[in-house]
Amino acid sequence: MKNFIQKIKKNYRDHFNMTNKPPRSISTFMQDMGEDEEAFKKYYKSFSDLDKEIWKDIAVSTITRVKAEDVYIDYAVREKMLSFLYTLVEEMKPYRAFVNYQFKHKKNGRIGITPKFLDDFKTEFMSFSHEIVNEGLDTTEIINRPFISEKYADALWVEVLFLISFWIRDNSANGESTDAAIEKTSNFAFDLLGQTPLDSAFDLVKFLFQRK
Protein backbone atom coordinates (compact mmCIF):
# COMPACT_ATOMS: atom_id res chain seq x y z
CA MET A 1 0.00 0.00 0.00
CA LYS A 2 2.78 2.38 0.97
CA ASN A 3 4.58 1.53 -2.22
CA PHE A 4 1.48 2.22 -4.23
CA ILE A 5 1.11 5.69 -2.70
CA GLN A 6 4.76 6.38 -3.36
CA LYS A 7 4.26 5.35 -6.97
CA ILE A 8 1.30 7.68 -7.38
CA LYS A 9 3.29 10.58 -5.95
CA LYS A 10 6.29 9.89 -8.12
CA ASN A 11 4.26 9.61 -11.32
CA TYR A 12 2.35 12.74 -10.43
CA ARG A 13 5.59 14.67 -9.90
CA ASP A 14 7.11 13.30 -13.09
CA HIS A 15 4.04 14.38 -15.00
CA PHE A 16 4.63 17.97 -13.86
CA ASN A 17 8.30 17.80 -14.71
CA MET A 18 7.54 16.60 -18.23
CA THR A 19 4.54 18.74 -19.09
CA ASN A 20 4.64 21.62 -16.59
CA LYS A 21 0.99 21.01 -15.75
CA PRO A 22 -1.21 18.56 -13.84
CA PRO A 23 -2.71 15.46 -15.51
CA ARG A 24 -5.97 16.12 -17.36
CA SER A 25 -8.02 13.88 -15.09
CA ILE A 26 -7.69 11.24 -12.41
CA SER A 27 -8.79 8.55 -14.83
CA THR A 28 -6.25 9.38 -17.55
CA PHE A 29 -3.56 9.68 -14.91
CA MET A 30 -4.39 6.26 -13.47
CA GLN A 31 -4.70 4.73 -16.92
CA ASP A 32 -1.13 5.76 -17.68
CA MET A 33 -0.14 3.85 -14.56
CA GLY A 34 -2.14 0.83 -15.67
CA GLU A 35 -4.63 1.28 -12.82
CA ASP A 36 -8.16 2.60 -12.51
CA GLU A 37 -9.73 5.61 -10.84
CA GLU A 38 -11.02 3.53 -7.95
CA ALA A 39 -7.50 2.71 -6.82
CA PHE A 40 -6.73 6.44 -6.59
CA LYS A 41 -9.96 7.26 -4.77
CA LYS A 42 -9.12 4.77 -2.06
CA TYR A 43 -6.51 7.23 -0.83
CA TYR A 44 -7.40 10.68 -2.18
CA LYS A 45 -10.64 12.41 -3.04
CA SER A 46 -9.00 14.65 -5.62
CA PHE A 47 -5.71 15.98 -6.93
CA SER A 48 -5.94 18.79 -4.35
CA ASP A 49 -5.71 16.20 -1.58
CA LEU A 50 -2.64 14.76 -3.24
CA ASP A 51 -1.12 18.24 -3.63
CA LYS A 52 -1.54 18.89 0.07
CA GLU A 53 0.09 15.64 0.99
CA ILE A 54 3.07 16.17 -1.28
CA TRP A 55 3.66 19.55 0.35
CA LYS A 56 3.34 17.98 3.75
CA ASP A 57 5.93 15.38 2.73
CA ILE A 58 8.33 18.15 1.71
CA ALA A 59 7.96 19.84 5.11
CA VAL A 60 8.33 16.60 7.05
CA SER A 61 11.43 15.45 5.20
CA THR A 62 12.98 18.91 5.46
CA ILE A 63 12.51 19.04 9.21
CA THR A 64 13.70 15.46 9.64
CA ARG A 65 16.83 16.13 7.62
CA VAL A 66 17.61 19.35 9.47
CA LYS A 67 17.26 17.73 12.86
CA ALA A 68 19.34 14.75 11.84
CA GLU A 69 22.43 16.92 11.38
CA ASP A 70 24.96 16.55 14.18
CA VAL A 71 25.50 20.27 14.47
CA TYR A 72 21.78 20.97 14.84
CA ILE A 73 21.75 20.86 18.65
CA ASP A 74 24.55 23.40 18.86
CA TYR A 75 22.89 25.83 16.48
CA ALA A 76 21.48 29.12 17.70
CA VAL A 77 17.83 29.47 16.66
CA ARG A 78 18.80 31.81 13.86
CA GLU A 79 20.95 29.05 12.42
CA LYS A 80 18.22 26.49 12.92
CA MET A 81 15.89 28.58 10.80
CA LEU A 82 18.60 29.13 8.18
CA SER A 83 19.30 25.45 8.05
CA PHE A 84 15.59 24.74 7.58
CA LEU A 85 15.37 27.16 4.67
CA TYR A 86 18.46 25.91 2.85
CA THR A 87 17.28 22.34 3.24
CA LEU A 88 13.80 23.27 2.10
CA VAL A 89 15.20 24.63 -1.15
CA GLU A 90 17.08 21.35 -1.62
CA GLU A 91 13.95 19.31 -0.93
CA MET A 92 11.85 21.37 -3.33
CA LYS A 93 14.31 21.00 -6.19
CA PRO A 94 12.91 17.73 -7.58
CA TYR A 95 9.45 19.31 -7.41
CA ARG A 96 10.36 22.50 -9.24
CA ALA A 97 7.67 22.21 -11.92
CA PHE A 98 5.06 21.19 -9.37
CA VAL A 99 5.89 24.10 -7.05
CA ASN A 100 6.00 26.50 -9.97
CA TYR A 101 2.61 25.48 -11.21
CA GLN A 102 1.00 25.59 -7.81
CA PHE A 103 2.30 29.04 -6.97
CA LYS A 104 1.46 30.49 -10.36
CA HIS A 105 -2.09 29.18 -10.24
CA LYS A 106 -2.98 29.86 -6.65
CA LYS A 107 -6.21 31.74 -6.07
CA ASN A 108 -5.03 34.43 -3.70
CA GLY A 109 -1.99 36.17 -5.07
CA ARG A 110 -1.01 38.23 -2.07
CA ILE A 111 2.06 37.42 -0.01
CA GLY A 112 1.21 36.45 3.52
CA ILE A 113 -2.01 34.67 2.62
CA THR A 114 -1.51 30.93 2.84
CA PRO A 115 -2.82 29.07 -0.21
CA LYS A 116 -4.99 26.00 0.46
CA PHE A 117 -2.48 23.47 -0.81
CA LEU A 118 -0.04 24.55 1.90
CA ASP A 119 -2.41 23.83 4.82
CA ASP A 120 -0.64 20.71 6.03
CA PHE A 121 2.78 22.03 5.13
CA LYS A 122 2.05 25.01 7.32
CA THR A 123 0.91 22.86 10.23
CA GLU A 124 4.19 21.00 10.12
CA PHE A 125 6.22 24.16 9.83
CA MET A 126 4.35 25.95 12.60
CA SER A 127 5.16 23.26 15.11
CA PHE A 128 8.82 23.62 14.13
CA SER A 129 8.52 27.39 14.21
CA HIS A 130 6.97 27.44 17.71
CA GLU A 131 9.67 25.10 18.87
CA ILE A 132 12.52 27.36 17.79
CA VAL A 133 10.77 30.54 18.92
CA ASN A 134 10.33 29.07 22.39
CA GLU A 135 13.92 27.98 22.44
CA GLY A 136 14.98 31.47 21.37
CA LEU A 137 12.92 33.01 24.16
CA ASP A 138 14.63 30.68 26.63
CA THR A 139 18.11 31.60 25.42
CA THR A 140 17.07 35.28 25.14
CA GLU A 141 18.15 35.28 21.52
CA ILE A 142 14.55 36.36 20.99
CA ILE A 143 12.97 39.02 23.19
CA ASN A 144 9.60 38.55 24.83
CA ARG A 145 7.28 41.44 24.02
CA PRO A 146 3.67 41.67 25.25
CA PHE A 147 1.07 40.82 22.55
CA ILE A 148 3.68 40.62 19.79
CA SER A 149 5.52 37.51 20.92
CA GLU A 150 2.58 35.30 19.99
CA LYS A 151 2.96 36.37 16.38
CA TYR A 152 6.66 35.51 16.04
CA ALA A 153 6.05 32.03 14.66
CA ASP A 154 3.67 33.50 12.09
CA ALA A 155 6.27 36.03 11.05
CA LEU A 156 8.66 33.20 10.27
CA TRP A 157 5.92 31.57 8.20
CA VAL A 158 5.64 34.75 6.13
CA GLU A 159 9.37 34.54 5.54
CA VAL A 160 8.98 30.97 4.27
CA LEU A 161 6.19 32.00 1.88
CA PHE A 162 8.24 34.91 0.62
CA LEU A 163 11.28 32.74 0.00
CA ILE A 164 9.36 30.07 -1.88
CA SER A 165 8.01 32.74 -4.23
CA PHE A 166 11.50 34.19 -4.51
CA TRP A 167 12.97 30.80 -5.35
CA ILE A 168 10.47 30.25 -8.16
CA ARG A 169 11.51 33.49 -9.81
CA ASP A 170 15.23 33.03 -9.23
CA ASN A 171 17.16 32.54 -12.45
CA SER A 172 20.63 33.06 -11.03
CA ALA A 173 23.32 30.44 -11.54
CA ASN A 174 22.94 27.68 -8.96
CA GLY A 175 20.21 29.63 -7.17
CA GLU A 176 22.77 31.93 -5.60
CA SER A 177 20.28 34.77 -5.30
CA THR A 178 17.99 32.59 -3.23
CA ASP A 179 20.87 31.73 -0.92
CA ALA A 180 21.62 35.40 -0.47
CA ALA A 181 17.90 36.13 0.07
CA ILE A 182 17.68 33.44 2.74
CA GLU A 183 20.70 34.84 4.52
CA LYS A 184 19.42 38.42 4.39
CA THR A 185 15.77 37.83 5.28
CA SER A 186 16.77 35.63 8.21
CA ASN A 187 19.24 38.15 9.53
CA PHE A 188 16.59 40.81 9.22
CA ALA A 189 13.90 38.70 10.90
CA PHE A 190 16.06 37.62 13.81
CA ASP A 191 17.50 41.09 14.28
CA LEU A 192 13.92 42.28 14.72
CA LEU A 193 13.04 39.44 17.09
CA GLY A 194 16.10 40.11 19.21
CA GLN A 195 16.86 43.22 21.23
CA THR A 196 16.48 46.30 18.99
CA PRO A 197 16.88 50.05 19.52
CA LEU A 198 13.09 50.27 19.37
CA ASP A 199 12.84 48.32 22.61
CA SER A 200 14.96 50.78 24.50
CA ALA A 201 13.14 53.66 22.80
CA PHE A 202 9.81 52.22 23.88
CA ASP A 203 11.12 51.69 27.38
CA LEU A 204 12.33 55.28 27.57
CA VAL A 205 9.06 56.74 26.27
CA LYS A 206 7.10 54.62 28.71
CA PHE A 207 9.28 55.84 31.56
CA LEU A 208 8.92 59.49 30.64
CA PHE A 209 5.18 59.11 30.15
CA GLN A 210 4.69 57.48 33.54
CA ARG A 211 6.48 60.28 35.33
CA LYS A 212 4.00 62.88 34.15
Binding site: V71, Y75, R78, E79, L82, S83, Y86, D179, E183
Partner: peptide
Protein backbone atom coordinates in the same frame (compact mmCIF):
# COMPACT_ATOMS: atom_id res chain seq x y z
CA UNK B 1 28.43 34.08 6.66
CA UNK B 2 26.13 31.82 8.67
CA UNK B 3 27.32 28.29 9.21
CA UNK B 4 24.22 26.75 7.56
CA UNK B 5 25.15 28.67 4.41
CA UNK B 6 28.69 27.32 4.59
CA UNK B 7 27.24 23.81 4.85
CA UNK B 8 24.96 24.52 1.93
CA UNK B 9 27.82 25.78 -0.23
Amino acid sequence: LSYPLVVRT
